[in-house]
Every structure is written in structure tokens, then in C-alpha cells.
Nucleic acid binder design. Structure first.
Lengths: 344, 344
DNA sequence: TTGTACGCGTTATCAG
DNA sequence: CTGATAACGCGTACAA
């Protein structure tokens, strides 16, 4: 129960506390014989280092906080995985909090992180309306890096990709397939910056292709299978329904494809569906999903690397890295047929 | 940078440290006026409670450690989600580590958790060969609960389900569909107890139905889409290939279905595929997957509840809860046709 | 190579 | 209701 302390080990060994401490952190400063003796004793007594006391004494922690919208939904799992591994490699633990896309939850988490004096924080996206909190956080000395977004005019470090460009490309691709009414099912762009930027990319591509923007064709929803399905159902029940639907996440796309099937529509013969994320499953589903590949894992890894540099003071200024995305063409989209109105 | 401390707040307020502390933890013991004054001051000075120091002083932490095999793979995400929410509700933070199904990684994580003197630990499964470590852990005073498994003769608390029974039922169902050669694609049962129990359930159901156990029909692999696909390909290339395949996880099942499709086989017309987990996606894929529903989220929630009881000393003895599973019949399995040998 | 001694920011125990 | 003060377990100058 009551664990043995360094102090006690020292006493047992007839050494000072400092020597025992050095045994752990700077063994090269200890005479090999002593080292051996102390180690043996620690093993024998079942000594376990107290990281809390250590962190406290050193006045810095070795845990990194991570904020993600949701632990479900595969795609964040990928960046989280990247974060995990890199952090482990660098000797940091992770404390993870999910917000459920809720601003208040995020604020609460952020406070918790401050209370724990975490070494650094990785934010998924840059909450609209939370600029102040985050700036204050940084000013308070906790290094921060944002993933999944590129930030303009903000002193923050980030490693992201252009949500605008990615959405633009996919929409443009759909237009190149001769689709003129392109639906858009998107996450909560009112609150989430990266979703908003995807909307902008979509609109921009429409414009470039001389296509009108039809507000009724864009649906804002939560990025779940269920919502994707329901949104698609709405789109399909329109009198002049879209011939292609661009979903703001693969989850939404899968839900959408499911809705199409239920309605007796074939993808891509009767309607094209494109996704965003390229989660593993996109390549294995039926039909395989055309989607935007996002460097999720890499973002996670690089975010940790940068964060650790900041933590260790090797880097003072903010790092800004923008990774490329890529359209992965599989089988869920195809050229629009003239007169493709199918029985509904 | 250097945050203000309780001490300083006390000085500023002309009060004692103790009173300020009480302001936070037992406001009812403080005169309303004083309370108000202190709170105002804390807000003004941007005081942020130091949870590390608090935990250290109190000699217990308010962080729960969670060990999962992988952050990818959807299904653990569900139990993790349950854990998250419940923990948050109870005022605990989470530190999450993933092992990648690797025993050494798990041990390392466990050590880290001990070093941080975490309040409690939730293990996913009960690593074969790690009995000692875990028992020592418990003896050292860290409450532990295992999820995803039911444990026999072990002093540990758990909240799980019968992997044996679940696999038995599904196999039995497949047999009732007149399948006589039932393939099994399973996670690493050599190392993972719950996978091993699924294998046992499968064998037992075979026996009950008078079916021979054919070792070549069971494939041990990692539970990923890719491995599911490859395993299925192997199964399908056999001269006397199975007419139904039971996958030990939905991921494997999706991979398997993909392999079947690539070979020109239709599911379920040409071959039946069943999964295990019932992740969200199972209901939305094509065809919708027949699978075993596992109470993932509930396991997570209940595990936290039990753990917190243990932490707070309300419960001394181990709690053992077994949740039910259920077969969800969708469209990926059907009765075997006589003479169903299709062109391969 | 080793030891001494102080500090880290709270909590908790006693008095008042 | 409030105050003093001793822990808590370790890191780290500074000395020896």
C-alpha cells in the first residue's frame, strides 16, 4: 500500500537521497558500484518512482494534453494514433479529452489541462470563438499546437492542411464529371472552422465551374453515419435532386451511400458520392469510396515533434506546417449521364 | 509564465492559506463575504488551481489510466467513449495508452501508471502471462477493473461478456443456416484471452452441431481490414472452401467481404460473412453485416462506476459483472444453397 | 563521486 | 469561521 520512497531507499543503502535520485536521472554521475547496489535495492524493495512528486518538484510535467472532438469516428483515431506513438517515443504520456464538438466542454478541458500544468497541448482545430482562451493559454506558458487546420494571422503553431483547397479540388473533380447539381453534407460549419473552410472551397469550385450555389443543396449536420444517412435522404427526396453528393467526412459519405441504397439507387450509377478523410474503411467498402486523403497520422506525429521542441525550449517562434492532401479516386463517383433521372 | 499561487492569493487577501484552500474545496466552511472576496481576487489575478500539487499533497491522484489495444479500430473507441463520459462526470481525467497488442508495451504503460500513482486503472482484457504484474498492481493499492472479458478465479473486478458464449451463438446460428464448413478469422488468440475464448466457443458450437473441426479453416491474424481481406483470400482459394466465414471482429468481416467481392463472389449469395462487435458501421455497410452486438459503451461506463467506488473505498470486494451479448441478424448471412459451388 | 538543505503548492490537523 | 504549520516525495544548487 504505502509505497517505499527514495528517502527510504537512501537510508537502507546508507546513502543520501541525492545519490539515489541520480541513480535514476543521471546514472553516469554515480560510481558503478553504488549504482548497482542502489538498483538492486530498489528492485528488492519494489521501489516505484513517483512521477507526480518528480513533476511537482521539477515544476514541469511530462504529459501532453490532447483535445479531440470525438473518440469515435475513426479519422481522429488516426491522428491520435500518430500522437500516441510519437509521444511515447519522446517519453510523454497523453491525457485525452473529447469535446463532442461542444465549446463549453472544450473550455472545461482546457481549464483542467491548465490545472494539471500539462507540458503542452494539442488542439484539434481552432475553435471559433475560443481565440482568447487559447491565446491566454499560450501566454501562460503552455505550448500549444493546432492540428487539422492551417491558421492565418495567429501566433499559434499548427500542422494542418488546406481544408479549402481539399474541398475545392473534390468539388472541381465532381464538376469535371459533368455534375451540375452537387450536394454537400457537412459537419457543423457554424462552429467548426475547418468545416467552414470546406464549405468555402466548395463554393469557390462551383463558381469556377460556372455553377450556381444552391443553398438547399448544402446540409449542416453532425458527422455521424446516422446523420449522413438522414441528410442524404433529404437530398434525395428533392424534386430536382443532386446527381452527386460531396460529404464532408467519410462517415457522412457511408451514411449517404446507405441512404441511396435504401432508396434503390445505385452508387455510382445513379448517384455519385464522394467523401473526405480517407479512413481505412474507404478502400474496403462497397463501392470503394472516392475521397480526399488527409495526412491524419502524419499531422499527429509532427504535432508532437513540434510541441516537444517547444516544450524543451529549442524553438521559440511558432511553427507553421501545411501538409498536402490528395484526391483518391475509387469507384463511388462517375460521370453524369444525360437524362439520368431514375425512378425514385 | 510563473503562475500565481494560493499562498500569494492569501497574502493579497490578508488571509491564511488555509482559508483560500477552503474556498475551493469546502466553500461552506467559509464566511460568504470572505468567500466572495477570495473568488474575486482569484479571478482578477488569473489564479489557476494547481492540481498536481494538490494530488501530490493529498497523496492520491484524480486520473484514471486506461489501456487499450489500439486507438484505431472503432470498437474500442466505443468503450473508451463510455469511459470518457463517465469519468468526466465523476471528475476524473483520463490518461490513455495503447499497446498495439504488444505485451511489452502494456507492461511499460502499467509501470508509467504506477509511477504516476494513478487513482485506478481500466484494462482492456486480461493479458495472458501478465497475471503477476496485475496482481502486484492491485496489491500495491491501485484499483483495477478489466473490461471486455469475464474472469474466472481471479480476485479482479471486471465488467465483460462471455466471449465464449457469443462466439458459440454465432457459430451455432451459421450452422443452423446449414453451413457445414465455417471459416473463422480471428485476432491473436495465442496472446489475447478474449480471442482465445471465441475460438473455444466456435469449436464448441461445431461440436454441438456434429461438425468436424478443420484447423485449416481458422486463421489467426491481426484485427485489421487488410488482414481480414488477406485471410479471406486464403480461405477462398482453398479447394474445398468454406460457405460461411465468421470473423472475430467487424473490421475483419469488412475486410473479408471486400476480398469476396474482388473475387467476384456475392455476399451473402455466394458466401456468408458474420462479424463481431457491431460497430456503428455494421448497420450501414453493403450488405449490412450480421454480427454479435457487444455492450461496448456500457462496459466502459460501468467500469468507471465500479472503479470509482473502489477508489473511494465504498467497495472492498471485487465486483464481477457480466453483460449480455446479442446476435444482430442483418443481410450478410443466408442459408447455404445445395451445390453452391460458384465459379471462382 | 557524494551529501546537505531548501523549495515546490497544496492538504490536513490542531488550535484558536 | 480562521490561522499556523507540518507533511508530501522528489529535484537541485551548492558544498565537500
Amino acid at each position: 500500500m504505502a509505497r517505499i520512497t527514495m528517502q527510504q531507499i537512501a537510508a537502507l543503502a546508507g546513502l543520501s537521497l541525492a545519490t539515489v535520485s541520480r541513480t535514476i536521472h543521471s546514472p553516469h554521475l554515480v560510481k558503478p558500484g553504488t549504482l548497482e547496489q542502489v538498483r538492486r535495492l530498489m528492485a528488492k524493495e519494489g521501489y516505484v518512482y513517483n512521477a507526480t512528486a518528480g513533476d511537482f518538484s521539477r515544476r514541469r510535467s511530462s504529459v501532453i494534453g490532447v483535445i479531440i472532438p470525438t473518440t469515435r469516428g475513426a479519422i481522429f483515431a488516426n491522428s491520435t494514433q500518430g500522437i500516441q506513438e510519437k509521444a511515447q517515443e519522446k517519453g510523454f504520456s497523453l491525457i485525452i479529452g473529447s469535446t463532442g464538438y461542444d465549446a463549453e466542454a472544450e473550455l472545461k478541458l482546457l481549464l483542467q489541462f491548465q490545472e494539471r500544468r500539462l507540458a503542452g497541448i494539442i488542439l484539434t482545430g481552432y475553435g471559433i470563438g475560443r481565440e482568447n482562451v487559447i491565446k491566454e493559454l499560450v501566454k501562460s506558458g503552455i505550448p500549444c499546437v493546432v492540428v487539422w487546420e492551417v491558421l492565418k494571422n495567429s501566433g499559434l503553431s499548427f500542422v494542418g492542411f488546406s481544408n479549402f483547397q481539399a474541398a475545392f479540388s473534390m468539388t472541381d473533380y465532381l464538376a469535371s464529371l459533368n455534375h451540375r447539381r452537387i450536394g454537400l453534407i457537412l459537419g457543423p460549419y457554424s462552429r467548426i472552422g475547418r468545416a467552414r473552410r470546406r464549405l468555402e472551397g466548395y463554393r469557390s469550385a462551383l463558381q469556377k465551374n460556372g455553377l450556381p450555389f444552391a443553398p438547399e443543396l448544402v446540409i449542416e449536420t453532425m458527422p455521424t453515419l446516422k446523420d449522413g444517412k438522414e441528410s442524404m435522404a433529404r437530398l434525395l427526396s428533392m424534386s430536382d435532386r443532386p446527381t452527386a453528393v460531396f460529404a464532408g467526412s467519410d462517415m457522412l459519405a457511408f451514411g449517404a451511400m446507405s441512404a441511396a441504397r435504401e432508396r434503390g439507387l445505385r452508387v455510382p450509377d445513379d448517384i455519385s458520392v464522394a467523401g473526405f478523410d480517407d479512413i481505412d474503411f474507404a478502400a474496403y467498402c462497397n463501392p470503394p469510396l472516392t475521397t480526399v486523403r488527409v495526412p491524419a497520422r502524419e499531422m499527429g506525429e509532427r504535432a508532437v515533434s513540434i510541441l516537444v521542441e517547444m516544450i524543451e525550449g529549442k524553438s521559440r517562434k511558432d511553427r507553421r506546417v501545411e501538409l498536402p492532401t490528395e484526391i483518391v479516386i475509387r469507384e463511388s463517383c462517375r460521370e453524369r449521364k444525360e437524362r439520368s433521372r431514375v425512378k425514385t
